[in-house]
Design a protein around this nucleic acid. Structure first.
Length: 351
DNA sequence: GATATTTGACCGGT
DNA sequence: ACCGGTCAAATATC
């Protein structure tokens, strides 16, 4: 019945796969010669983009039926994190059930992935670094059986851009230099070009519940201190269907997870999924729905002097009703049903 | 004064 | 009832 779509799908996948292969080859050659960090990173990002595109296609296609035969090769984002360490993560694919946060106010199942970050510094206190997004801590809890409390962060721009990404940071019991960071949800905000940290000071975001709290104030400093390595993917919530074998985006990643640190913040980062979906339109053109504009004006600044909880309510209600911001796209999105998981209401840019 | 963090209270799931 | 996650008032920081 959807033969046309199927055809397009295959073609798309094919094209993307080819592109990715070429990029891999190029990268291979590059490694043989004189790998400059920036070049490598660029390729890294190119590959990552391909990965994302493929992943999205697959995801949207399978939508609920686990992988549709394709291994959910799953990293929706760059495989390099700010601190230069590779990351891999697993998503729980079951995020198709929360249409809008507003109604249930329960962000039940979202893409969730965990990474472990080892902190290098001798005293290893600062916690994992800036991951390119700015977070706001909203809670801390002692967890049963855990030595260290768990910290809860959410995206600073939740109100302004209706971004519902959150993360939890838990210091490992036995190895205090290891932090386990669980990301939940994807960023729909656009703080991607945040190589320059926003005024909100995202840097010291990570726990400082340790007795010592001499946090370095400069992000770059911090970055340098945490040339963390070791990323372990885990987390695949309640999705039994998901094949255990998700793999790294590209085989290269698995082999060389020592990507050189560079000052760059990968632009796709955690928001991969959402930003992905948005990207065809968002990244270049900043159109976006009128509703979005209202939202933006609404909050004004990332302040929340007015009981935070109402605003998102309004916003998402708004957003969920105006569900067709994407007008002129050529891709048959309607068949893919993208809107399920990812709030399109996000604004491309907050200005 | 605006924004971020801290921390006890609250709430929902199990 | 317990536990993890979130809220929100109080407090800290800029």
């Amino acid at each position: 019945m959807e033969s046309a779509f199927t055809w397009e799908y295959k073609t798309l996948v094919d094209e993307l796969t080819q592109g990715m292969e070429k990029a891999k080859q190029l990268r291979f050659h590059l490694f043989a010669t004189s790998p400059s960090e920036e070049q490598d990173l660029l390729l890294q990002r190119i590959l990552s983009s391909y990965e994302k595109a493929l992943l999205i296609l697959r995801w949207s296609r399978s939508d609920g039926k686990a992988g549709a035969g394709v291994p959910a090769s799953g990293v929706p984002e760059s495989s390099v994190s700010v601190d230069g360490s590779p990351r891999s993560e697993t998503l729980n694919k079951n995020c198709s059930d929360h249409q809008d946060y507003s109604t249930s106010k329960k962000r039940k199942l979202q893409p969730t992935w965990t990474e472990q970050v080892r902190v290098n510094s001798e005293n290893g206190l600062e916690g994992p670094t800036d991951d390119g997004y700015s977070w706001r801590k909203y809670g801390q809890k002692d967890i049963l059986g855990a030595k260290y409390p768990r910290s809860y962060y959410r995206c600073t721009y939740r109100l302004v851009q209706n971004c519902w990404a959150t993360k939890q940071v838990q210091r490992s019991d036995d190895d205090p230099t290891i932090f386990e960071i669980t990301y939940k949800g994807t960023h729909t905000c656009n703080q991607s070009m945040n190589a320059v940290p926003p005024p909100a000071s995202p840097e010291k975001q990570e726990v400082k519940h340790s007795s010592h709290e001499h946090q370095l104030e400069q992000p770059n400093q911090t970055l340098l201190n945490f040339r963390t390595n070791l990323r372990v993917a885990t987390e695949n919530l309640d999705n039994k269907e998901m094949p255990p074998q998700f793999s790294f985006p590209s085989t290269y990643d698995t082999e060389n997870h020592y990507f050189p640190i560079s000052g760059l913040v990968d632009d796709s980062h955690l928001g991969a999924y959402s930003s992905l979906f948005l990207s065809p339109a968002t990244s270049e053109s900043n159109y976006f729905s009128p509703a979005t504009c209202q939202i933006k004006n609404f909050g004004g600044t990332p302040g929340y002097h007015q009981s935070e909880s109402d605003i998102p309510e309004i916003i998402s209600a708004h957003a969920s009703t105006t569900n067709s911001p994407i007008g002129g796209m050529e891709f048959p999105f309607d068949q893919v049903e993208l809107d399920q998981d990812f709030p399109f209401n996000t604004s491309g840019f907050f200005r």
